[in-house]
Structures are given as C-alpha cells and as structure tokens.
C-alpha cells in the first residue's frame, strides 16, 4: 500500500532522514518509536508530503507520489492524518469540522456528510458535541473529533503523529481506546507515539527509528522483548 525507497530529508544543512526503506501492507498497524529528534515524525509527514522529500521515492497504491505531475490533493484524500496539536478548525462547529472536507470536495452531499458525521461522532462517543465549538472541548475530546474528521473522508490509511503527546495523562486512555477500535476494524495505520504499552498491544509491527534510519523492525515481541540493535536496547531501557 505504501512503499518508501531510500527516503532522505534535509532541513537546510540538517540531515533528518538518511535513507529509509519501508513497505506498509494493507491492514498493518505500524507503530514508529524512537528518541525525540530521531526523524520519526518527519518520516510520517513525508508519507503524505506535508514535508517535501529531498531524495527518494514514495509510492501509494503503486503510484509514485513525490513527482510534480501527481495531484497530491487526491492522494491525501486517501490518507487521514491526526496531529499532536489536534488542529481542529476553531471557527467551525464539531459537525462542520467533520463535514467540511467531504462536502467541499464533493465526496458527499451535506446530508450524507452529516449522517456520516453523526455515525463517526457516535463511534468516538461524542455525538452530543456536534453543535459545540472546539474551544468547548477537552483535549481528549478534541483529539477524538480530529480522528472522526480524518475518518470522514473514508481514507484507506490513517497517519497519527504523536496523537496523545499533548494530552493530560487522564485523557490519553480515551484516545488510545478509539485508536484500538480502529485498528481492530482493519484500518491500515501508521502511528508515531511514545506510548510503549499501546505499541505492544496494538502494533502488528514496530519500527525503531534513530538518526534518520530504521534501526530495527519487527513484531512487538521481537522489538520489545528481544531487541537486536544496541541502540534499540539502550532506548528501551530508558523508556520501559
């Protein structure tokens, strides 16, 4: 579904990604872990070209996306993204946040989108918040809405960029629960997170990224219980 070949990313003179090769298959839940500054968020953001790629190739459904003749907006419609800072649209109600893109992009009529919006809000347990504004919600609620908003476009894959890092501890659980449900439903997911317990429980595969390369890749059991790479061992000894 997503293929990454020799991905490099430079910010001015700083090499953030130094050659990443990765293949993500449909239905996989890939959790990306690693120390801060390792390039894991940049890797995720390159997947839908929120960062432009310095070198290398990214394929989505066998189509190379980092070339100028690709309509990136159409590619992004297949890839939902959830941000650390939620990034809900504060001038729109919760329902409008969810229906804006599908209606504007003519994927659904307003009625269809609102029906779907209610379904999604029910799924994240926030049905009664439809007419509220983002400022009236707690962090955990905002992030659940952000997930619903991304799902409204019926994406094939969901990208999560540290979705619980900006949350108060008592709200982390409610967001992770929604993500677990989503994983169970068979959604392809790529998740950058520091929640090791969650990674162990939900991931079908764990990637350990450091210094802009994938140091280790394997099932949660392999990576957490049997790390082969010295850096992985060091990192896990600090966070577990």
């Amino acid at each position: 579904m997503i293929k990454v070949k020799n991905l490099h990313k430079k910010f001015n003179d700083l090499n953030v990604l130094n050659g990443i090769d990765e293949h993500i298959s449909p239905g996989e839940v890939v959790v990306v872990i690693g120390p801060s500054g390792s390039g894991k968020s940049t890797f995720l953001r390159c997947l839908n070209l929120l960062e432009d790629v310095t070198e290398g190739e990214i394929y989505v459904d066998d189509q190379m996306i980092n070339t100028p003749n690709v309509n990136i907006n159409e590619v992004r419609q297949k890839m939902g993204m959830v941000f650390q800072q939620f990034n809900l649209f504060p001038h729109l109600t919760i329902m409008e946040n969810i229906t804006l893109a599908p209606v504007l992009l003519k994927k659904m009529t307003k009625e269809q989108a609102e029906k779907r919006g209610l379904e999604l809000l029910r799924r994240v347990n926030l049905e009664e918040k439809a007419p509220a504004y983002p400022a009236q919600l707690s962090g955990g609620q905002k992030q659940r809405v952000a997930i619903a908003r991304a799902l409204a476009m019926n994406p094939e894959i969901m990208l999560f960029d540290e979705p619980t890092s900006a949350l108060d501890p008592e709200m982390v659980g409610e967001v992770l629960d929604v993500m677990k449900d989503l994983a169970k439903s068979g959604m392809t997911m790529v998740i950058v997170t520091h929640e090791m317990g969650f990674a162990r429980e939900v991931a079908s595969r764990v990637l350990f990224v450091d210094q802009g390369v994938i140091m280790e890749s394997g099932t949660p059991e392999d990576v957490f219980n049997n790390p082969k790479n010295e850096r992985t061992k060091l990192f896990l000894s600090k966070v577990l």
Binding site: N48, L50, N73, E74, R76, Q77, M79, G80, M81, F83, Q85, N87, L88, F89, P90, H91, L100, A101, L104, L105, A146, R149, A150, M153
Partner: peptide, 25 residues
C-alpha cells in the same frame, strides 16, 4: 500553521484551505 496542514492533509487544495480555513480565522 497547523491549520493549513490540517486542511491540506484532508485533501483540500491551497486555495480552498486559504478561503475556508485560514482567511475566516
């Protein structure tokens, strides 16, 4: 800037993001 990124990540183009998300705010 996260607002622009959120709009673009949903598949809106630059103009739609500007007129529907950034300018109203």
């Amino acid at each position: 800037h996260g607002q622009t990124e959120a709009g673009r990540s949903l598949g809106l183009n630059a103009f739609q993001t500007m007129t529907r998300i950034v300018i109203p705010q």
